[in-house]
Design a protein around this nucleic acid. Structure first.
Lengths: 201, 201
DNA sequence: GAGGCTACATAACAACTGTTGTGTAACCTA
DNA sequence: TAGGTTACACAACAGTTGTTATGTAGCCTC
């Protein structure tokens, strides 16, 4: 075997094998040997690039985050206000098979994250970052009069509440769409999002 | 040891031990021996009452369903329309520590349910039953003029879309509340729900 | 082209998994 | 009080887990 192997490329290949295993067995079926088999290799390869299983999984999640981030950023790039909001949230929904795999793995990850304090904190932080990115758009939409910032009589907390509603709704819809894809094709998810945004205006 | 042991009571005790293990290790850490240890017994007891691990887990989930059902039914009992809706949805939110444990386990269960076709179908069915119970209340609220049934210009699908929005929002909020309980105390969850219902009117 | 280093395969490790016996103390029936 | 049955503990099973140690084929450098 050649010394000519790009370390980073290999690590990424491994991460994608991890991803494929997760997609059809969940974390419950994730093992070193399963990943190795999926990769057409042995655990020797895995341990050569990763010190432990935890490290491996961590890297796999990072890789997917890297791969997701551009997709999310691209959605609604340069578009602000209500329309920007709509596009960003659409990007989180289950738009195609790839998005389904991705969301499926994240949802499965919650089992670990809820039992491990450290993972749980980082997941909470991820949520906060998501809300952070939506906040300016909500503000824009309110200022433009496209969203009602005084829901339920609240004057101050109204904007933050809208952010909470939007994120909660979106992820909740993703979960239902994963379990019942026939009932929730993309158009139906979009329709629900549109209806919610309309109601909030 | 006495022959005088109530079979059903023991099975329930076992189920609760399962529950306690799940609450702090998730499905990832659920093993026969962990349950036995939690119970202060050995795996011999477990196998005496359950044929397999799968059967054990299944029973544990049923038990919790039994324990949850009355709680849900009690919430908003006899109350219809918008207020009934509000009460039923509140009952699903993370109202106290017990509810947190309960939701935590269900969310963790999604890892298994998403990887196992049979479990996935039954989870989809559970969602459908939930929507089913909400539908008449939404209808009442619309007829009473407390909810706007023609969101987004939809005349026919409007009611069903409202149900989708409410269930998605509620579960999505539960997930965020589990990861960030400090940010989402009960009052804040209620406030978000109230704001959503207000927006939908 | 000899030595060394890289990239793995292979094998073995102890720990743990679900499951299946086997033993046995205590109760119930007769 | 004898015999049977129930409710487990205990032990052992084969399989799987993550991890570590050892081997070795190939390339790179000198």
């Amino acid at each position: 075997m050649p010394v000519t192997v790009d370390h980073d490329v290999r690590r990424r290949e491994v991460a994608e094998a991890v991803w494929r295993v997760l997609a059809d067995t969940g974390f419950a079926g994730l093992s070193m040997r399963a990943v190795a088999r999926e990769l057409g290799a042995t655990t020797g390869l895995l341990t050569h690039y990763f010190g432990s299983k935890r490290e491996l999984v961590q890297h796999a999640l990072e890789v997917v985050h890297e791969r997701t981030a551009p997709r999310m950023a691209a959605a609604g790039e340069g578009v602000g206000g209500l329309e920007g909001l709509r596009l960003r949230l659409r990007a989180v929904l289950v738009e195609d098979e790839e998005a389904a795999v991705l969301s499926k793995v994240w949802v499965g990850f919650w089992d670990l994250a809820l039992a491990d304090a450290e993972l749980g904190r980082s997941e909470a932080a991820r949520y906060e970052r998501w809300r952070e990115r939506l906040r300016p758009l909500v503000d824009e939409a309110i200022d433009a009069g496209d969203l009602n910032g005084e829901l339920n009589g609240e004057l101050e907390g109204g904007r933050e509440t809208i952010v909470d509603i939007l994120t909660a709704f979106t992820h909740g819809l993703v979960v239902q769409a994963l379990f019942d894809p026939d009932r929730f094709p993309v158009e139906r998810q979009y329709a629900a999002l549109d209806a919610l945004l309309a109601a909030l205006s």
